[in-house]
Lab assay of single mutants.
Amino acid sequence: MQIFVKTATGKTITLEVEPSDTIENVKAKIQDKEGIPPDQQRLAFAGKQLEDGRTLSDYNIQKESTLHLALR
Rank of each mutant, 00 (worst) to 15 (best):
A44R: 12
P38Y: 09
K27N: 01
T7D: 14
I30D: 00
D32I: 10
E34Y: 08
N60M: 09
T12Q: 13
L71Q: 10
F4I: 10
D58R: 03
E64L: 14
T9D: 11
I61R: 00
V5E: 00
E64I: 03
I36C: 04
S20D: 15
T14F: 09
I61N: 00
A70W: 11
M1P: 02
E34G: 04
T22H: 08
P19F: 09
Q2D: 12
L50A: 02
I30P: 00
I13L: 11
D58V: 04
K6M: 15
I3G: 00
A70F: 11
P38M: 10
A70R: 07
I3S: 00
G35C: 04
S20G: 10
N60F: 10
P19C: 04
L50H: 00
L67V: 06
D21F: 09
L71D: 06
E51W: 05
K33P: 02
E16Y: 14
D21P: 01
F45D: 02
K48N: 08
L43T: 01
P19Y: 08
A46C: 05
E24H: 13
D58K: 03
K6N: 09
R72C: 05
V17D: 00
S20A: 10
E51G: 04
I3E: 00
R42C: 06
I23T: 07
K11Q: 09
Q41Y: 09
T12G: 04
R54H: 14
I36F: 15
T7A: 07
E51K: 09
S20P: 06
Y59D: 02
D58Y: 13
T9L: 10
Q2Y: 12
T66F: 06
T7G: 07
D32T: 10
R42T: 10
G47I: 02
L15F: 05
K11W: 09
M1R: 02
T9V: 12
I13M: 07
H68D: 10
A8I: 07
Q2G: 11
E18N: 10
E18K: 12
S20W: 11
Q41K: 01
Q31N: 14
Q40G: 06
T12K: 08
Q31C: 04
Q2W: 15
K27H: 02
D52S: 07
D21S: 14
Q62H: 13
K11T: 14
G35W: 04
L50C: 03
T12E: 06
E18Y: 11
P38H: 13
Q40E: 10
I61K: 00
E24V: 08
I36Y: 09
L15V: 07
F4G: 03
T14Q: 11
Q62K: 10
T66R: 04
T14V: 15
P37L: 11
Q41E: 01
T7V: 09
V26K: 00
R54P: 05
I23R: 01
S20M: 14
F45G: 02
K11D: 11
N60A: 14
S65P: 02
T55S: 13
T66W: 07
R72S: 14
D39W: 13
V17I: 04
S20T: 11
L15H: 00
D32S: 14
S65G: 05
T12H: 07
Q2E: 13
D32R: 08
I13F: 11
V17N: 01
S57D: 15
Q41C: 04
Q41F: 11
R42G: 05
Y59K: 01
L50I: 04
K11G: 09
I13D: 01
